[in-house]
């Protein structure tokens, strides 16, 4: 992103940043309100994580410019996210398998 943007195109960017700001604020309120809904635990987790992921993608995509970022960085991040999920979920399977129900581990999530 260190290309020489002229001021006009930069101002377009600024408009986008402000819109993202607004969206993030709204989504924060939505998460809090959603936590007061009568949802089961797993539904609640699912909904909260969905909203958080949307917020995260907004920050990543616009503030951190990932939507226009070079391939190399995207690949490094994809790899990292893969290992991240490996690290988070494989130990979980060990826990559930331990509980004696190896085939239905997803039910506990």
């Amino acid at each position: 992103m260190s290309d020489n943007h002229d001021t006009a195109s930069m101002q377009d960017h600024v408009r986008v940043y402000l819109m993202v700001f607004g969206a993030l604020g709204v989504l924060t309120v939505v998460t809090v309100l959603a936590s007061y809904l009568k949802l089961s635990t797993s539904e609640g987790i699912f909904l909260a994580l969905i909203i958080a992921s949307v917020k995260a993608s907004l920050v990543l995509g616009y503030f951190m410019h990932l939507i226009t970022e070079r391939k190399m960085i995207i690949w490094i991040l994809v790899m990292t996210v893969f290992f991240f999920f490996v690290m988070i979920f494989l130990p979980l399977i060990s826990n559930i398998d331990h509980a004696g129900n190896p085939t239905q581990w997803w039910k506990v999530l």
């Binding site: 290992f83 490996v86 399977i93 060990s94 398998d97 331990h98 190896p102």
Partner: peptide, 21 residues
């Protein structure tokens, strides 16, 4: 090398599905 670590833990009782994997 990121997905083999638990072969150090076969004896922890982490379960057969994990061991097999």
């Amino acid at each position: 090398s990121f997905i083999v670590w638990a072969h150090h833990m076969f004896l922890t009782g982490m379960g057969q599905a994990m061991s097999a994997f």
